[in-house]
Design a protein around this nucleic acid. Structure first.
Lengths: 340, 340
DNA sequence: TTTTCAATTGAAAACGTTGTCAGCTTGACC
DNA sequence: GGTCAAGCTGACAACGTTTTCAATTGAAAA
C-alpha cells in the first residue's frame, strides 16, 4: 500500500512512485504535470489521483537541474529594517504571488563591496533574475552582473542589455517639497542631505537647489547639513544646524527617517513644529501619518514600485506579468508645514 | 583554452571542466571541494587553481539533489512591513551569515490558512529547517509540520519532537509596564489590547491584570479597548475610549505601533502626553526612541531573538551555531510617563 | 624479493526530473 | 486488406553533483 510508504518515509515520494501507483511510466507522469503533451483522459485521471493520494510534490531541485531554471528571484536590499525597503518588498512579494517564484532577500548595508558579495551569493544559487534596490554598486558592475541573468534595478537609469530600470524622479520630489515651503513664504530653508554617494540623495538635493533658484533664493551653504538617511543622522544634523546659529524657518529632510530625528531634536529644544519651524520629509513611510503632528512629505509609490519591478522581471523571464502603472510622486501636505 | 569556453557560455562551468583543466577525475575534484577524503598536495593545488581560473561555482541544485539538503531555511513572518518582524529578521540574517544557508521569507498576514499555505510552499522547496515567528497556527499543526523538518518557533512554548521554542514572557512585560504606571500613582489605567486570538497579546493582557490585582485595583472593563497591533487600531481604540467618557490617567498599549496611533489621537484632541495622560508601549521599535516625546516602552531583545532562533536551528541541522544569550525583557522609561 | 596494507585515485552508479526517440495503437483512406 | 499518418506511450539518456567500489600505487614488513 502506497500510503504506508508515505508514512514510513515522508521525504521520498517521487515521480516513480506516482507512476507505479497509477500504472503508467514516469514520462507520462511528467507530461501530465507539465502539460507538455496530450495524454489520454483515463491516464490523466489515474495520475492526478495518484498524485493527490501520495501527496506528491515534485522535487524542485531535480527539476532545476534538468531545466536550468530555479524559480527563484534574488533581491538585493540595503537594510531589512528600513521601512523604505520593506514597503517595496511588500510590493515585490505581492507581484510574484502565485507565479511559483520565490524571493531570496539579501542585504548589502549600503556598502558596495558587501553588495557585490551578496550578489555573487545569489548567483551561486543560480537565481533566475535579480532585483537590485538602489545601493552603491556602479552601473558597470550591474551591467556585468546582467550578463548572467536579467536584472531590474531601481533608483537609477541604466542602459544595458538585460537590465531594466525602475526610476522616478527624486529630483522632482525634492523640487516639489522645496517649492511647497517656498510657496508658504519660507526663504531660509535648511536641507538635511542623505549619504553623499547615494544617487537618490543627490537627486533630491538637486531638486532643492532648483526650486530655490527658481524662487530667486541664493543657496546658503550654512543651511546644508549632512545626514545619513537614518533617524540618528537627523538628530546629529539638526543639532549641528541649531548649534551653528544660522537662522532658518523651514527644513527639508532628505527622507522621513531623517525628519523624525530632526523633529525630535527640535521638540527637545522647545522649538515647535510647525509654529516655529516647518518640516518636510520624503518617502511617506507608513508611520509618518501617525506622527505628532503628522508629517508633510513626498509620497513615493513604493508598493507599486515593488509590483512594477516584479512585473518587469517576470516579463524578462518570459512570464506574462500584469502591467503596473506607476503613480507619480506626490506632495502630501499634513501638519508640519505652515505659512511663515 | 578553458577561458574561452567560460566567456562563450557563462553558465556551464562544471566539475567536469575543472577536472579536465586540472588533469584529474571528477571524484577528486569533489573530494577536494568537500574535504571528505585526503588527496595529494599537488592535485589539490592544481584543482584549486583550476577552480579559481574557471570561476567554478558548484551547482547547488545538483548538490541538493544528491545530498538531500538544500542549504535553505524557510522563515514564516506575518508582515514584511512590521518593524517587529524586520528586527527579528535582522538577527536571523546575522545569525546565518557565512554559514552557507540562505533565507526564504514568506508572509502569513496573520491568517492561519495563509500561514499553512506558505509553509507548504516552503516545504515544497525542501527547506532544511523552518523558523516560525508567532502567528495563528495551532500547536498541533506546527508539530505536524515538524515531522518533515526541524522547526524553531517564537512566542509560544511547544513540546514536540523536532521543535524548539524561543519564548519569553510577554506576561512579565505586561506586568512591568503596568506596574510602572501604578508606581507613578496611576489607578485608572486603560489597556489597548492586541488581536484577541494572538497569544502574545493575550499574555500582555494577563500581565496587565496581574499588576492591577497586585495593586488592589479592580479591573474596569470600560478601560479595555480592542486594537489590532497596528497604528490604525490604536487610532480607533483611542477614539472609542475617549468617546466612551470613561476617565483615565494612563494608557498601556499592547505594542508600540498601537501606542503611536493612540498618541496621535490624544495629540489631535489636545490631550498632552505625558502631562494629561501617561502612555506606555511594548516592543521598543527603532523609531520609538525618536517620537515626540520619546516613548516609554518594554524592550524586547528582538535582534537577539533572531540570532537565537538561527543558532537553535543551525544546531538542529548539525551545524555548530554560536550560542546566544537572550537578554531579559526590560522597561525603558522615556518621556511619555509621569507621576500623576 | 615477495607480501601486505594503507593511501590515493578513477569509473560508474546514484539523486529525481525532463525530453528525445522510437515503438505501438488506432483509425482513416485508398 | 494494406498503407499511412497521427496520437500516445515507455525506455532511456541527460542535468551536475556526491559517493560507493574497486583498482592502482608505493611503502613498509617479512
Amino acid at each position: 500500500m502506497a500510503l504506508d510508504r508515505l508514512v514510513a518515509d515522508r521525504q521520498a515520494v517521487t515521480v516513480l512512485d506516482v507512476a507505479r501507483e497509477a500504472g503508467v511510466s514516469v514520462s507520462t507522469v511528467s507530461r501530465i504535470i507539465n502539460g507538455t503533451v496530450k495524454v489520454s483522459e483515463d491516464k490523466r485521471l489515474a495520475v492526478e489521483d495518484a498524485i493527490r493520494r501520495l501527496e506528491f510534490k515534485p522535487n524542485l531541485f531535480a527539476r532545476s537541474l534538468k531545466k536550468g531554471t530555479t524559480m527563484t528571484i534574488g533581491v538585493l536590499i540595503q537594510d531589512v529594517e528600513s521601512p523604505f525597503f520593506t514597503r517595496v518588498m511588500c510590493g515585490l512579494e505581492e507581484g510574484v504571488l502565485d507565479t511559483g517564484y520565490a524571493l531570496i532577500i539579501v542585504s548589502g548595508h549600503w556598502d558596495a563591496a558587501e553588495e557585490a558579495e551578496r550578489i555573487k551569493l545569489l548567483m551561486a544559487r543560480r537565481v533566475d533574475g535579480l532585483v537590485i534596490l538602489t545601493g552603491h554598486l556602479s552601473d558597470a558592475q550591474i551591467a556585468e552582473f546582467a550578463q548572467m541573468q536579467p536584472i531590474v534595478v531601481t533608483g537609477r537609469k541604466i542602459d544595458a542589455e538585460n537590465v531594466r530600470s525602475v526610476f522616478f524622479s527624486n529630483e522632482e520630489g525634492g523640487y516639489l517639497a522645496t517649492r511647497h515651503l517656498v510657496s508658504l513664504g519660507h526663504r531660509r530653508i535648511a536641507f538635511i542631505a542623505g549619504p553623499p554617494t547615494h544617487s537618490d540623495a543627490i537627486s533630491r538635493f538637486e531638486g532643492y537647489q532648483q526650486a530655490l533658484a527658481e524662487a530667486g533664493i541664493v543657496l546658503d551653504p550654512a543651511l546644508i547639513v549632512q545626514g545619513d538617511f537614518k533617524e540618528n543622522g537627523g538628530v546629529f544634523a539638526m543639532n549641528r544646524l541649531l548649534d551653528s546659529g544660522a537662522p532658518f524657518t523651514a527644513v527639508f529632510a532628505a527622507n522621513d527617517q531623517t525628519a523624525l530625528g530632526a523633529r525630535m531634536v527640535l521638540s527637545r529644544r522647545g522649538i515647535r513644529v510647525p509654529d516655529d519651524v516647518s518640516l518636510v520629509g520624503f518617502d511617506d513611510l507608513p508611520t509618518s501619518a501617525y506622527l505628532t503632528p503628522p508629517l508633510t512629505t513626498i509620497r513615493q509609490p513604493l508598493f507599486e514600485v515593488g509590483q512594477h519591478c516584479a512585473s518587469l522581471l517576470l516579463g524578462m523571464l518570459g512570464q506574462q506579468g500584469k502591467a503596473i502603472a506607476l503613480p507619480p510622486l506626490e506632495l502630501v501636505v499634513r501638519e508640519t508645514t505652515r505659512r511663515v
